[in-house]
Computed example of a mutant assay.
Amino acid sequence: MRRLTTVAVASVMALSAATPASAAEPSAAQGAWRPAPQASYDLPAGARCDFAVHTQPVVDEVRKLVLDTYPDGRPKRELYAGDLILEITNTQTGASTRADAGGTTMIDYHADGSMTWYAVGPVMAGFRAGGGTLPRGLYILDGVYTLDIAADGYKTVDMIQGSTRDLCADVA
Score class of each variant (00 low, 15 high):
L86Y: 01
S114A: 11
D68G: 06
A129Y: 03
A29H: 12
R48I: 13
G153S: 14
S40Y: 07
L4D: 15
A10R: 01
T6Y: 10
T105I: 12
P122C: 08
A150H: 10
K64H: 14
K76N: 02
G82E: 07
M124Q: 13
M1E: 14
R2H: 11
L15H: 10
N90S: 04
A21Q: 11
W33E: 12
G103E: 00
D50C: 09
D142F: 03
S40V: 05
D42F: 01
W117N: 11
M1P: 14
Y70T: 09
P35N: 15
Y118M: 03
G73T: 01
A47D: 12
Y109E: 14
L86W: 00
A18W: 06
D112N: 11
C168D: 00
D50H: 01
A45N: 08
A119C: 00
A28K: 15
Y80F: 05
V58Q: 09
L84N: 02
D100I: 01
D100L: 00
L43M: 14
A95H: 08
V66H: 12
V62R: 10
T89R: 01
Y80N: 01
V53P: 03
G102C: 00
M159N: 05
V171C: 00
G126I: 09
T116L: 12
I160Q: 10
S40A: 14
Q161P: 03
R3M: 14
P20C: 05
A8S: 08
R77Y: 07
A8V: 04
D166E: 08
D72A: 06
D108M: 03
Y154C: 11
A101F: 00
V157K: 09
I88K: 04
A47E: 15
G121W: 05
V7M: 14
V66Y: 08
A119I: 04
Y41F: 11
I149Y: 11
T19K: 08
W33R: 06
T116H: 06
A24T: 12
G121T: 05
A23S: 13
L79W: 00
K76W: 02
S114P: 05
D60P: 02
A111I: 10
A47M: 10
Y70H: 11
A129D: 07
A39F: 00
T104R: 06
T6D: 15
A169S: 12
L43W: 14
C49F: 01
Q56V: 07
E87V: 02
S96H: 10
R136K: 12
T5Y: 06
Q161W: 04
N90F: 00
T116Y: 02
T97Y: 08
A32C: 09
C49R: 06
V144R: 08
T164N: 05
V7E: 15
T6W: 03
S40E: 13
S40W: 00
A52H: 02
